[in-house]
Simulated assay, not measured.
Amino acid sequence: MQPKPEQERAPVAEAAIDASLLPKGYPKKVWTQDGGAVVVATGQEGGCSKVHAELAEQTADHVKVVLVEETPEPPGMCTMDLRYPPVAVQLDAPLDARKVVLEQRDVKVPR
Rank of each mutant, 00 (worst) to 15 (best):
M1V: 13
M1F: 14
M1W: 14
P3K: 07
K4G: 12
E6D: 11
Q7Y: 14
E8M: 10
E8D: 15
R9E: 12
R9Q: 13
A13P: 14
I17P: 05
S20L: 00
S20F: 03
L21N: 15
P23K: 14
K24Y: 12
Y26R: 06
K28W: 03
K29W: 12
W31G: 00
A37G: 02
V38H: 03
V38T: 10
V38A: 01
V39K: 00
V39D: 01
V40C: 12
V40T: 06
T42Y: 10
Q44P: 00
E45Y: 05
G46T: 09
C48V: 04
A53F: 04
A56G: 13
Q58A: 02
T59F: 10
V65M: 09
T71Y: 10
P72V: 00
P75Y: 13
M77Q: 14
M77T: 13
C78P: 14
C78Q: 15
R83I: 00
R83F: 01
Y84N: 07
P86N: 15
V87A: 01
P94E: 05
L95F: 02
D96K: 14
A97Q: 15
A97Y: 11
R98V: 04
K99R: 14
V100F: 09
V101M: 13
E103N: 10
E103M: 12
R105Q: 15
V107K: 15
